[in-house]
Computed example of a mutant assay.
Amino acid sequence: MSEPTPDAKAEATSEAAADPAPDAEPVVAPPRRVGRTVALIAVAAVLGIVAGTAVGYGIQAQRPPTALPALNQRDLAYPAKPLPKGKEPEPLSAAEDRGLKTEGDLRDLLLPKPKGAKSSPFAPRDNRLSITAYAATYDYPGAAFSSLLEDGIRRVVSTGWSNGEGRITEINLVQFRGGAGQPAAQRAEDQRGYLGDEDGAVVRLIEGSADGRAYLLPVRREAGRFDVYQARAVFHRGDVMVDIILSDVKKISEKEITSLAERQLERL
């Protein structure tokens, strides 16, 4: 028998590798560990940042403090020289500066009591109303008190009168801190949102105001009592919110509440 040639040996070896024996177990490569190198790099980067930050703070701490510039710098004065006497600008008038009126006695801006009207038993004698007393007019006095303080309430003045026939008028001027009047505007908006939720309320615009509204509320009826009609007007001017309440045992017309609100607006 002749020996197989080298080409025949190579062919047999190739066939054996391509077609393993049925009983041979498959060889499984070990799983590759992925992520270890990435984790090591991330840890090294974090350590580098921490070390760099510590070194930076150390260097900064060893440096002498840098002096700040003086606050009273001469070049910041305006004008550069005082104006000659007699040439100073005139102060703003009350029409030009809304805050000028409200910085004085706020009670002077309340509508006066009409002739023949009686003082309301609910109005304070000196027209000054404490924040606690004003908060007590809300449905939830405790929450109202906290909310008013958060809004920066400053003071409240109030007046009221009765015509002796069942009608009671109440006017509250509520002043807030904040300069631009934003707290007063927001408070007025909150009140209008509450009044607008009343079912059947009639809403009317207050002429001359940005977004003031007057409301004719639904009549309240109870067995054995007179019907109670109520109208409200809420608006703001500058840092003052105005809250007007009319109560009567007879119907209140739209003109009565809007006219009262417009006259109070003119005072501001």
Rank of each mutant, 00 (worst) to 15 (best):
residue 127 N to R: 09
residue 160 G to P: 04
residue 240 V to E: 04
residue 225 R to V: 11
residue 220 R to D: 08
residue 13 T to F: 12
residue 171 I to R: 00
residue 10 A to Q: 13
residue 13 T to W: 11
residue 108 D to R: 14
residue 75 D to Q: 12
residue 264 Q to S: 05
residue 48 G to M: 09
residue 107 R to W: 01
residue 253 S to Q: 12
residue 143 A to H: 10
residue 150 E to W: 03
residue 140 Y to P: 00
residue 215 Y to N: 05
residue 221 R to I: 13
residue 30 P to H: 06
residue 102 T to R: 11
residue 18 A to E: 12
residue 245 I to L: 15
residue 174 V to Q: 10
residue 189 E to Y: 05
residue 171 I to F: 01
residue 119 S to R: 13
residue 184 A to S: 10
residue 161 W to P: 07
residue 109 L to D: 05
residue 236 H to M: 00
residue 66 T to F: 01
residue 180 A to N: 15
residue 43 V to T: 06
residue 232 R to C: 03
residue 125 R to W: 01
residue 8 A to K: 14
residue 255 K to H: 07
residue 157 V to H: 01
residue 38 V to H: 14
residue 247 S to Y: 00
residue 243 D to G: 01
residue 256 E to G: 01
residue 173 L to V: 06
residue 65 P to S: 02
residue 149 L to N: 15
residue 262 E to W: 01
residue 238 G to W: 02
residue 150 E to T: 15
residue 138 Y to R: 10
residue 228 V to W: 07
residue 223 A to W: 04
residue 211 D to V: 04
residue 62 Q to L: 11
residue 205 L to S: 15
residue 42 A to E: 07
residue 23 D to Y: 09
residue 15 E to K: 14
residue 169 T to M: 13
residue 59 I to A: 12
residue 221 R to W: 02
residue 25 E to R: 13
residue 27 V to W: 12
residue 80 A to D: 14
